[in-house]
Nucleic acid binder design. Sequence first.
DNA 1: GCGAAGCCTTGATGCAGATCAACTCGACCG
DNA 2: CGGTCGAGTTGATCTGCATCAAGGCTTCGC
Lengths: 248, 248
Amino acid sequence: MLKDAHDLIPRECDACPIRHRAVCARCDAQELEQLDQIKYYRSFEAGRTLIWAGDRMDFVGSVVSGIAMLTQTLEDGRTQMVGLLLPSDFVGRPGREKAAYNVVAVSDVVMCCFRKQPFENMMEKTPHIGQRLLEMTLDELDAAREWMLLLGRKTAREKIASFLAILGRRNAVLNMSKAAGQVVFDLPLTREAMADYLGLTLETVSRQISALKRDQVIHLEGKRHVTVPDFDRLLEEAGDDSDGGMLA
Amino acid sequence: MLKDAHDLIPRECDACPIRHRAVCARCDAQELEQLDQIKYYRSFEAGRTLIWAGDRMDFVGSVVSGIAMLTQTLEDGRTQMVGLLLPSDFVGRPGREKAAYNVVAVSDVVMCCFRKQPFENMMEKTPHIGQRLLEMTLDELDAAREWMLLLGRKTAREKIASFLAILGRRNAVLNMSKAAGQVVFDLPLTREAMADYLGLTLETVSRQISALKRDQVIHLEGKRHVTVPDFDRLLEEAGDDSDGGMLA
DNA sequence: GCGAAGCCTTGATGCAGATCAACTCGACCG
DNA sequence: CGGTCGAGTTGATCTGCATCAAGGCTTCGC
């Protein structure tokens, strides 16, 4: 299943798909050289837990390809997703000994790992890395705060619509959005993972997706392929403050 | 009411109560000098909204004294708190034009404001500021993720207990915790603000506090003064993973 | 081709927390 | 000192989502 994972591993940073969005985005050729000394690639197959909360961490790194999630659980098993990691997202916290969250591969994942101690040393001397990491962390904090509004105050239907809007927005940017307002994408998560993202049960997720389909807000082919005929309609359903959506 | 606010404004950074925890924590004397050129103090009375989401921001800054909250709202008025700002916490985002959240003074607040443009320029040249801001932002992100678990997966009782535990832990650190496990503090928020923090209604907050009192998990004098006779008991009620609590 | 397992959907029922409403208490003010 | 206003409590009722349960569809291994 992972037999061709090494095809996805860039030979050098110039060829790296996340070169200009990851922690290393601001680094110059010489700094990349240094990073190269302390990095290595790892591949994980879908479903595998890369890191358990509480584990000792000896690396930090970037997601190169695939999707992973950060989760927390209570003793009785209730699970909440607290981060969704896409290519270029950063994993781990410089200066921290132990992992604070579980990291689980949603799809097959390739990571570019940096040995932790050398990376921390390098951060001290190379402002470019810390600067970029600050930007990325601030973005994540903003995302976390949107997410808190969703978890604390939205109805199940609004939660689903919001989640679809997030995915749709992302794909609209990448795919240069199809004709007038029509947006198409695949759900990267199972119903259960969506439930953990949204603070719902998988049954409620399923029901609300069915309801949005019934009400023509979305169309579904199979269980994962979504078409949004009218994106503004979807945004209304998401209940967000009308304007706020597009501020980058 | 604010007549003596200027008494709370430090004359110089050395005398500043948040000198060693705020963004400026790592700055040396010369850097403080520079910051001094671009800073000014502002006072706000309890209840005032310091900043409206969408407002143009021409400063960033630190809370010197008092408590403020970040909130987001949906059009129909549902409100979620997304940040609780204590002395030394940072307000605003370098590089961002417009405020993303409302900032509301919970108590009287004094802020140390930096003019935004000069502050950003200084960040470019002074790694100490960016480094400290990164640390603080990472801490906030961790807090946000704990908060997401609370919002998404905890029951009303667990939410209240968790919130009390957070307050109690903070005060235990400051006040060198009273005799054996006993913790005492005042609630800084109204029932309504607590509800906005926890994603509940104020009625539910009130009922659950009453329930915890009835069950002897806490004692109340008046409506705000809380005594926790057995802190471990409170942590159990909070439902957290047993160990996780004390990792700083 | 058949059984098992994973993912998903749908139905029936129950309950935690929202909503609506009445009331208490203390602070402030003319 | 009576009136008002904001904060908090408590009760009655309603409802959205969780829970429990059954069954469908697809994929995979034998």
